[in-house]
């Protein structure tokens, strides 16, 4: 991950980081990724879109929840392990308390049709947030050394593997990721050779 440019805003302290991640985690209904992109890139500008895609790609390949790995990398970049700890705690603490309270009171809540309806409405918004984020990520591929054709081929293969063939995520990431890595090594080597 590239460090932020000097004119980039950055968090003031681990506490600031903790609060920012709490705020974003509490908005993350149906997944935090799209909210993280929105808050960290669009609104706070602690990362660029390219940095976000890079960090997300690495987080994806490592074991563990992607957004937790992503928070860890960002926190570590600004304040070392204290930042990493602050970011992860912010991401997990408040939602954890909420979900445990919810689990403890689930049997009383489940009977209301309005609750079920609200959950469906929130689910639709979550889907819209993710699709919008995907469209924004698309723009970052413009500067990818693979070039547009190979990028589209690799991206579409991933999409079809997951949605049509329902391939297990680990195999998709390892298989297509390795393919992408090898192709990219070849592209970068060829470009530097030609220079």
């Amino acid at each position: 991950m590239t460090p932020a440019a000097p004119d980039h805003p950055r968090p003031r302290s681990p506490l600031h980081l903790f609060i920012a991640f709490t705020v974003l985690a509490l908005q993350g209904f149906g997944g935090v990724l799209a909210v993280a992109q929105r808050e960290l890139v669009d609104r706070r500008r602690w990362m660029t879109r390219e940095e976000f895609v890079d960090a997300y790609s690495v987080a994806q390949l490592l074991p563990g929840p992607n957004v937790v790995n992503l928070s860890l990398m960002l926190g570590d970049r600004f304040f070392g392990w204290r930042g990493a700890f602050a970011a992860i705690s912010g991401m997990l603490l408040a939602p954890l308390v909420l979900v445990i309270v919810l689990a403890a009171s689930y049997n009383q809540l489940a009977g209301f049709p309005a609750v079920a309806g609200a959950l469906r409405g929130m689910g639709a918004v979550a889907a819209g947030l993710i699709l919008a984020m995907a469209l924004k990520m698309l723009g970052t591929l413009r500067r990818n050394p693979l070039g547009p054709v190979l990028c589209a081929l690799l991206g579409l293969t991933t999409l079809v593997a997951v949605t049509v063939f329902r391939a297990p995520l680990a195999w998709v990431v390892i298989g297509l990721g390795t393919a992408g890595w090898c192709i990219a090594r070849w592209c970068i080597a060829r470009r530097e050779h030609g220079r």
Binding site: G30, G31, L33, V53, D54, Y56, S57, V58, Q60, L61, G123, A124, A126, A127, I130, L131, M133, A134, M137, L138, T140, L141, N144, P145, L146, L150, C151, A152, L154, G155, L156, T157, T158, L159, V162, T163, L169, V172, V173, L176, G177, A179, G180, W181, C182, I183, A184, R185, C187, I188, A189, E192
Partner: peptide, 26 residues
């Protein structure tokens, strides 16, 4: 180059996965 190729090669896969997630959620 190895690390640059790593993030460059994975980026299209990541974007494809996010589209797939959006599709599966919809």
């Amino acid at each position: 180059p190895v690390v640059r190729a790593f993030t460059a090669g994975l980026a299209p896969v990541s974007v494809g996965l996010v589209f797939a997630t959006g599709w599966l959620l919809s």
